[in-house]
Design a protein around this nucleic acid. Structure first.
Lengths: 202, 202
DNA sequence: GTCTATATTCCGATAGAC
DNA sequence: GTCTATCGGAATATAGAC
């Protein structure tokens, strides 16, 4: 309700997130972050001692933003097919609104894998495991065809994330304009779920 | 047959490719390239005037390496299902041997989309179009269920490329060791094709 | 807390000897 | 062609006034 004036620290973090995600860790410039936050470099270092410290915080925030989204949708008590439908829709909507996040994460995680092996994922792993058990049980009960839950998860995550990473390639290769691409992504909200379900149903 | 001593230029290009692909364009250092090539920075600039020139060459080589692979497998005269099986197997083998290539390409293409819109893809587009027509015809003939060739291509490419990009995430989230991950990729050489075919068969 | 000015480090690029 | 030495600019980081 209040005019809600954001603090300088919040302004910096928002600007830093934008710049790091757009330019990558190595490509980002402290000057540009300061400019976008409407302050100067000195103040940047006053709040966050170094570029490395600042980037560390942004990375943690990014992981904290995307991981619960990726995993959270998989932990509900729904029927397997309904769960897949909902997870696909939710996740595509989320990435559409945070288009730089996947590329940043994928880069970070490849340049610095051990950082990720720590606490970041372990906490979400239980959600994943629940989904995998659900898949295994459906296979055992003959309600879906035999398929490894590992392979299924890789397929699902791939189809959700990669089109956004490869957007310029797909646009060029398939002759899509910006709007046409958006439309295709919108279609995927249902198409991908159906693609998966068609493939695994008994 | 000859002892085949690689020229300095070749040594540089190999080193540059390795460093650029590992560290990204902005993260790569001319010093490191020189070190890996066993020479010094001055000589680097003697052969390739600037970092930008050198990176341009590496990008062209990378595109020239991966695009024909991606498209080439789709242009044969095979039956649709056989073609999918072969394309999946070939492509996974290729990326397994060039694991840094997808991350580099995806970065480059996102930071510099126009570079890609030019000649790079247009030449390969015909192969893609041939595949898409084949899909459309199969749909029209009722040999596969109705599906957009655009969506099918996105699904296929995603499942082929993304697991390598997200390798550290998958390893952490699914509790896979390096060897276990390799094994899963090996399984994917047949599993992905079956996953697709199961999904689209009439 | 915020600024201007400056120090420091790093890195791409060049000069010039061999 | 290859090297050592160095320049010059850019980017991170700090000093110190307000």
């Amino acid at each position: 309700m209040e005019p809600q004036k954001r603090t300088t620290e919040e302004l910096i973090l928002e600007a830093a997130q934008a710049v790091f995600l757009e330019k990558g860790l190595a490509g980002a410039r402290m000057q540009e972050i300061a400019d976008r936050a409407g302050i100067n470099k000195a103040l940047l270092h006053y709040y966050f001692r170094s570029k490395e410290k600042l980037s560390g915080i942004i990375i943690s925030r990014a992981i904290g933003t995307i991981m619960p989204r990726m995993m959270g949708v998989l932990e509900t008590d729904q029927d397997l097919f309904d769960k897949i439908r909902e997870a696909v829709g939710t996740f595509i909507s989320f990435i559409s609104r945070n288009s730089f996040l996947p590329l940043f994460m994928v880069n970070e995680v490849n340049r610095n894998p051990h950082f990720f092996f720590t606490a970041a994922i372990q906490q979400e792993k239980s959600h994943l495991d629940k989904f995998r058990r659900q898949v295994d049980e459906a296979v055992a009960a003959g309600r879906i065809r035999p398929i490894s839950s590992t392979q299924l998860l890789m397929n699902m995550m791939s189809m959700l994330v990669f089109p956004f990473l490869g957007k310029p390639i797909f646009c060029a290769a398939l002759g899509l304009t910006e709007e046409a691409f958006q439309q295709e992504m919108e279609r995927r909200r249902t198409e991908v779920a159906e693609f998966i379900i068609k493939s695994i149903q008994a």
